[in-house]
Design a protein around this nucleic acid. Sequence first.
DNA 1: ATGAGTGCAAAGGCTTTGCATTAGG
DNA 2: CCTAATGCAAAGCCTTTGCACTCAT
Lengths: 156, 156
Amino acid sequence: MSTGHRHGSDVPDVAALHTEAASRLADVGQRFTDNRRQLVDALAHADHPLSIPELLQATGDVAQSSAYRNLSVLERAGVVAKVVTNDEWARYELTEDLTGHHHHLVCGSCGAVRDVVVPGDVEEHLDRALSVLAKREGFVLQHHRLDLVGVCKKCS
Amino acid sequence: MSTGHRHGSDVPDVAALHTEAASRLADVGQRFTDNRRQLVDALAHADHPLSIPELLQATGDVAQSSAYRNLSVLERAGVVAKVVTNDEWARYELTEDLTGHHHHLVCGSCGAVRDVVVPGDVEEHLDRALSVLAKREGFVLQHHRLDLVGVCKKCS
DNA sequence: ATGAGTGCAAAGGCTTTGCATTAGG
DNA sequence: CCTAATGCAAAGCCTTTGCACTCAT
């Protein structure tokens, strides 16, 4: 799936997302509980990876330890991915096969991270070049991460 | 400067590196002490970003707190850059204007990170595309970070 | 009933900081 | 001499874990 989500102007298909999340959790022997649904929904409605404080605020009544534990479970289930940035907290986002491939605008000034989609032809060109490179290095390439580092609109 | 270093087969120009490091430290009112020289040398001879444990081992007799403090100073001076990965420790490398622009092969299995250089034409193509994108987003682009995530030769 | 999930509090582990000592200009 | 730098130990802070309670099946 790659139904509409925050990158476009369309509304996220919440039902489909829930079904898929539940399915992936079931695959690893886990339930789609209310806490987990709240975390997934918060991530689905954000246009950038969320930190734990942001997630706690967005969900309202999820205990911090539960948030960490459930994010870990969701990560193992392939529903969310941890995004490491230079700021103090880890950030989380839905996996790319749920939201679509994208990259990040990282503001070196305030630390803000925003999702951005790179034109398809650029991605293809890049992927071809990286495949060749990986093969040459004896490296099994799974995917690439690309961050644009600079100063966001608000800080400049 | 961008004298020879670990990416090529050439030997790092230690003297020039020291001069440049000392100069940049002086610019921010800091000295090029023996501990800092040891850290810089260790980074110059590695072919991948080093974690604190690796740096402590490579330097031998630098106290952990001094390593952290000096890396912070070197970072402010623009001599080293912190590289954030998904593993437990932060990693450090010399800044790209000292070593040349490069990217990282990140092994999702063992966490190893190795430097890799992408062909110039690919970089140019990418930079042009990203400039257009950044302008459209009202973002002042300074540089990009590109990681190849997969499985390294040793783990596959 | 029975195991998964939850929440509070305590523990862990990387990183930072306080402070007395040492070294460089 | 005098300030910067160093090293040890203690403190911080994000994250993980222990444990008893609750909920769903």
